[in-house]
Amino acid sequence: MRAYAMNGAGNAFIVIDRREASGPAAYAADQIEAMRAVHPFDQLIVLDPSDDADADLRVWNNDGGEVGACGNGTRAAAWLLFEDGAKPQLRFTSTGGLMQARRLDGGAAEVDLGPARLDWREIPLSLPMETVRLDFGVNLPDGGRLEGPGAVSMGNPHVVFAVEDVLALALSEIGPCVEHDPLFPERVNAGFAQVRDRDDVRLKVFERGAGLTLACGTGACAALVALHRQGLVDREAVIEADGGKLPVRWDDQGHVHLSGPVVLERELDLSGV
């Protein structure tokens, strides 16, 4: 087993390669906390052995909860395997569905996160509702209100609000109200997107179980899909997060593709965890 500190557009990970292990990993909350003491991270990415793919990819948020998908984490894991000599096309199984990765010219990894899920049951929501614009809103500290977000599942649940100025919002106060609303039985990742052009979006995401992060890959994918369904952007755009720019495209088959920067920071010693 080898472990690495990595980031994708500032989205921080510990990536653990367990492909040679005899079975899947299991991590308790106290182990997650011990890993955070070794290296702070947003998500823990674990590559387990798989009979049906190159690896089974599992994701834990830094609060100890396991989740179904992490776009930037999948890119980081794919890049790591490409650098280790893997073939230029990879397949990952996950609880969020099958994901595929390919190596781009220049060495970057692009991940196909599969189809965007758009039915209210797939998000999931606690009530039947049209997901292009939810009948849902959140009050702002200054007395205003945000309403009508789009809802998308990318293997994990997202809502995306189109806003005029994302940098003016008190997201540390707004985010938890959205994340924990009863409409979202599994909680939700809350995205706030400022459309600057049809192929240019400024995004911030309050991630369930992690809070505000420098970037969120599945959040960037959900933002493109949600904004396109509302007629605000094209099917391909650059989504700019605090940590960098993430190119996203929604193809004609409904699959969402994510690319962007990856940094390998250092190898970690987790033997005492």
Rank of each mutant, 00 (worst) to 15 (best):
L203H: 05
E83M: 05
G260K: 03
T131N: 13
P49Y: 03
R249T: 11
P24T: 08
R75Q: 09
V67M: 01
Y27I: 02
S172F: 12
N11S: 04
L258M: 09
V67Y: 02
H158S: 12
Q31L: 10
D30E: 15
D234W: 13
D17C: 11
D197N: 15
E173N: 02
F161V: 04
K87Q: 14
A237Y: 06
A28Y: 11
D234K: 14
E173L: 12
I174Y: 11
W120G: 10
W60H: 07
M154Q: 09
L47Y: 01
M99L: 15
L246E: 07
D42S: 14
L47C: 10
P157M: 03
E122D: 15
D269T: 03
L258G: 00
A28H: 13
Q230T: 10
G73P: 02
V238F: 10
R75C: 08
F192A: 06
R235F: 05
D252I: 04
P141F: 06
L90K: 15
L171T: 11
G106K: 14
D52Y: 07
V262K: 04
A29T: 10
G68E: 05
L224D: 02
R187Q: 13
R235M: 10
S94G: 15
R19C: 14
V201C: 02
V38D: 00
G107P: 13
R121S: 10
M35R: 08
A223C: 11
Q253C: 08
C177I: 07
P128D: 13
D52E: 12
G71M: 01
S153F: 05
S50P: 14
N11I: 06
T93L: 08
G144E: 02
I14D: 12
Q89R: 15
W79H: 14
P149Q: 09
G150T: 06
A76T: 05
R18T: 09
F136H: 08
A69S: 15
R133F: 12
L81R: 15
F206E: 10
G175D: 05
V205Q: 04
R235W: 09
A77F: 07
V188S: 06
A29F: 10
A101I: 05
G219R: 02
G260Y: 04
L47K: 03
S126Q: 09
Q253S: 11
G244M: 11
L127G: 05
N61L: 04
L146T: 01
